[in-house]
């Protein structure tokens, strides 16, 4: 089993916020998912691809104004060679933004 915590910063100048949504910048849920994929790859020291999301709950809205930084918690457990069960969460202090259980694989 492998686990780690990655501290991330939201970039308020990202072009994503121009379209999501105009005048109301909110980090798209799928971008939070992509943060997890990349942080998991950083913890694992190898690129990973998401095969299956068993469940992903997005419990709070993340914006660059209210949440400039957050912690991404990753736990990876190999099930068969090259395939891993991942449990992940994005949180800041006692606010939880996202929890996920999924299956990922080496790319």
């Amino acid at each position: 089993m492998l686990s780690g915590v990655v501290r991330i910063c939201l970039n308020p100048d990202s072009s994503v916020y121009k379209g999501h949504f105009p005048g109301e910048p909110v980090s798209p849920g799928v971008c939070n998912l992509e943060m997890i994929r990349r942080c998991a790859a950083a913890v694992h020291h190898q690129p990973l691809r998401i095969l299956r999301i068993k469940q992903c709950r997005m419990t709070s809205v993340m914006t660059p104004d209210t949440t400039p930084q957050a912690d991404v918690n990753i736990t990876l457990q190999e099930t068969v060679p090259g395939v891993y069960r991942i449990t992940a969460a994005i949180e800041n202090g006692n606010v939880s933004y996202l929890t996920m259980k999924a299956e990922v694989a080496d790319e």
Binding site: V30, R49, I53, K54, C56
Partner: peptide, 16 residues
Amino acid sequence: KLGFIGEIKDCCLSVL
């Protein structure tokens, strides 16, 4: 209306 993803379940991503 603005919509936010609340939950994703049983999501199978077979092809990129």
